[in-house]
Design a protein around this nucleic acid. Structure first.
Lengths: 134, 134
DNA sequence: GCTAATGTATATAGAAACGATATAGAATAA
DNA sequence: TTATTCTATATCGTTTCTATATACATTAGC
């Protein structure tokens, strides 16, 4: 039930970009160095973030990546839900059909409530909030 | 970030035992059949639950397993924390030394808050509550 | 005491996910 | 045109997950 490095690294990636929001396009290489994460791995993690339009990219010399929205408008919950593929703790929350017991399972509801509590907290924190904390 | 089958099966195991709390020692085999889970796998999952004194067992003929406490006194949060090895979402919540950035990491605090919100919900639900819901 | 019924312990193993790296290609500013 | 940067795919070793198998220990009931 631990968070994967995908969402943890992804959040740090986004936070690093938020920190340099006004500096124009940033090289992934720079972020990788600052955060101590492999560039190659970040290149994978950034893909869904770009698809979901959280990040815009420019190729070529002077290229790089920029947040598509100001840090105030991006929550940690969004990032985690994106990179963990959904905001649930169990598969059957989203797809009831993966388990025949879904309709009568008393535990299923608890997992949904727990996930909701968790994401309510995560959704209440923006990248800007995180920056202000430091 | 999904819950493992350990905590999910473990919770169903405990709930099944709660349901038959007054029937004396229950065979794992029975629970396995009712819940559609392999006996051998349940035998593994039950070990930490016994060590943590949630379950008492009797060997030999007429043996079986019983809850060591009434269902009102066992929360889902306890079971999950036990079987997921801790009530945190990231390793560094418990052991700061696994990451040199722990002391200054702005995301670490968020993961702690999210885990706290999640377990507050899980801790508020007892096995008895779950039984009453059905 | 024996014996059958039950739980206990340990080892093994296939499958899937995780974490990371490598290679080749496409776009573009200068 | 070229150097720089992002993009797309493939690969790969490790770990964790899930499950099964085998051998052993305990004990109620005869």
């Amino acid at each position: 039930m631990k968070l994967s490095t995908r969402s943890r690294y992804g959040t740090r990636l986004m936070l690093d970009m938020a920190e340099h929001y006004d500096d124009g396009p940033i090289h992934l290489m720079k972020i990788a160095q600052r955060q101590g994460i492999s560039v190659k791995y970040l290149e994978q993690i950034i893909i869904p973030l770009k698809k979901a339009q959280y990040i815009k990219s420019l190729r070529g010399p002077k290229g790089g990546h920029v947040l598509a929205k100001p840090p105030e408008e991006i929550t940690v919950g969004e990032i985690v839900a994106l990179l963990e593929e959904g905001d649930s703790l169990v598969e059957c929350s989203q797809n009831a059909e993966v388990c025949e017991r879904s309709s009568v399972c008393p535990t299923r509801q608890v997992w949904r409530e727990a996930a909701a509590a968790m994401f309510a907290k995560l959704d209440s924190v923006t990248l800007a909030d995180l920056l202000n904390r430091t």
